[in-house]
Design a binder for these strands. Structure first.
Lengths: 338, 338
DNA sequence: CTCAATTTGACATACGTCTATCAGTTCTTG
DNA sequence: CAAGAACTGATAGACGTATGTCAAATTGAG
């Protein structure tokens, strides 16, 4: 048998389609007795409104805004590219996606940007975990704007969903691989981060330390060096580190700017196990030539598509499919590159 | 401005909507001169038919059939489960998915099953690479049934698409991780497969050997043991192997039945690096307790969703988004389990 | 039992496309 | 240049839902 329509429901419940519609969309008062019968009919026919028809009828346009950090962070630029290429693909789904750039490191300007957004049905934001930002998210939410956090979460805020990975698990993953790759060898492990005030960096570091301390006591983890995700600073820091630490056998790069670290390691003949995050031209090349042992990544394409799907579903008050929206912690070695 | 409709195109081209429709859907002959003008109008307005409206109007029902091996292979049962749970989810997309079970190891019965399919718009098949199967796929294709191969490909056949991973790359990935995990240690590596006549197993073995021979000469790879994916046989084979090979330091399990291998390794105190395929209750538990070092996997949920999307797109003659349909070779360690 | 308030039903229009029909126009061909 | 063939336009109905209007039915209060 074909799908049930709203008319079937009306027949079954012995009321008119108008009344079914009133129940479904809370359009007007319906006597409880009738509402009950409608609901029973819906259940017994397993009726679900046809989303296609509903969207067509509503002529709804989804207006979304993606709020991204400006700057030359390769990963963020990748996200940006995915957004534009998807907005194109989604034109047939009536999705309009704008991109707004803000300063990553300044909670106030991010909060201001969020407060200034008008006319959007949904907002996806690469957020900073700060009270001002949390409050801005609450503000949007109150105005019925669906908010999802992207890549970096603001736990406990009014966001409807977080699209991204568990960063402390990512850090633990890095540690396990570092420990296993180093095997029986003993020595020091250097850790480079962008800034420990970035929640994702701090979380990765936390997870990394947790596993290293519990399971790989033979490896001595050096204090974090903060390079602000800048390749030149990273290069300099690693060069210094190499001089000061003759027994350095591994480096974990928590943030961006791996090319600086690679430059500093150039003449170490791949003897230092280097684990870093995110897949891009530099890290891809590093994996292939052997200078990078492992890359831990999240798929920006998946994240953008997931954010769009979640925003759309939330706007329609439709359920989402958890398994489909889970963002994986991807491990790449030379041989499983996409 | 809002999306262009078929009417806008008709106006712009100075013809009627009927003519535009004839051009779009090849419904009847249109004078070349008019066809040109319509196409120009489509381009200049960047017109794309609204898929929602089109689907609604066509009232199209997609009828798909998934052809899976019968038996108790955990991975296949996982696929099955994903199909049913998705068919449910896709009821709102008008997708009907049946499942047909066949004998994996018999090309003739698979070919017969394929020949016997009637009334489907699309077929997804976990195939065997055999001339009879290839011919059966060609037959379906001629009757305008879209065929995609799932998990195991039939290269050079008339299938429209392959949904699955590159198995020789998966084997290489396993080898790289095995080599790195073993580090400086020297010793023997055991390899267990279901059957080398299964294309995916043979390919994984090929990739594994390729990397081991080129890069990890210190490790001696033993000849493949074929256990028909049976846990008991696997257990027995590994027990024998352990006795005969005192320097065994790693096992690569190409196929299914890891629980047998785990049983045989029980009292080895995790000193053997065990790498196996696919995520399930056994391998998940093994990763957590430490008896399995790495699991190489493909996401069955993703594969089913991808197969459905590809089938739908091909039926509509719509393009697919390659990046979205790429199935990744997933690497799991204890810390990045979903 | 009456009157007003509340609830309901029937119907119309719209969303953008598909499909079909039929009369009307333009083109071929002899 | 007439007859037939090839093409085109106008229009209608369908898909399943949303939304609005208005009259009819039901209810509750007094």
């Amino acid at each position: 048998m074909a799908r049930a329509t709203i008319e079937d429901v009306a027949d079954k419940a012995g009321v008119s389609v108008a009344t079914v519609d009133r129940v479904l969309n809370g359009r007007a008062k319906v006597r409880p007795q009738n509402a009950k019968r409608v609901e029973a009919a819906i259940r017994s026919l397993n009726y679900h409104p046809d989303r296609l028809a509903a969207r067509l009828a509503k002529g709804r346009e989804y207006r979304f805004c993606f709020v991204l950090p400006k700057g030359d962070n390769v990963f963020m630029r990748g996200l940006e590219q995915e957004i534009s290429s998807h907005a194109l693909h989604l034109e047939s789904e009536r999705v309009n996606a704008d991109i707004l750039y803000t300063d990553v490191f300044d909670p106030q300007s991010l909060a201001d940007a969020l407060h200034g957004l008008r006319g959007y049905d949904g907002v996806a934001v690469v957020a900073l975990d700060h009270p001002k930002v949390r409050e801005a998210i609450a503000g949007l939410s109150e105005r019925d704007v669906v908010v999802v956090t992207l890549v970096s979460d603001v736990p406990g805020s009014a966001r409807a969903h977080f699209v991204g990975i568990d960063n402390s698990a990512a850090g633990r993953t890095a540690a396990t691989l570092m420990g296993r790759y180093c095997g029986e060898r003993k020595g020091s492990i250097g850790v480079i981060a962008g800034s420990m005030s970035l929640r994702d960096h701090a979380e990765r570091h936390f997870g990394f330390m947790q596993v290293m301390q519990q399971e790989y006591r033979g490896l001595k983890v050096l204090p974090v060096c903060e390079g602000r995700d800048n390749a030149n600073r990273n290069e300099q820091m690693v060069a210094t580190m190499l001089e000061a630490t003759p027994d350095l056998i591994g480096i974990y790069n928590i943030g961006s700017g791996p090319e600086g670290i690679l430059a500093a390691l150039r003449n170490k003949d791949f003897s230092v196990t280097f684990i870093t995050h995110e897949l891009n031209t530099f890290t891809r090349k590093g994996l292939i030539e052997g200078s990078i042992a492992v890359v831990i990544a999240q798929d920006p394409g998946h994240e953008i598509r997931s954010a769009m799907r979640v925003l759309m579903a939330r706007c329609d008050r439709a359920p989402i499919l958890a398994a489909m929206e889970r963002i994986a912690i991807d491990i790449y070695v030379r041989d499983n590159l996409p």
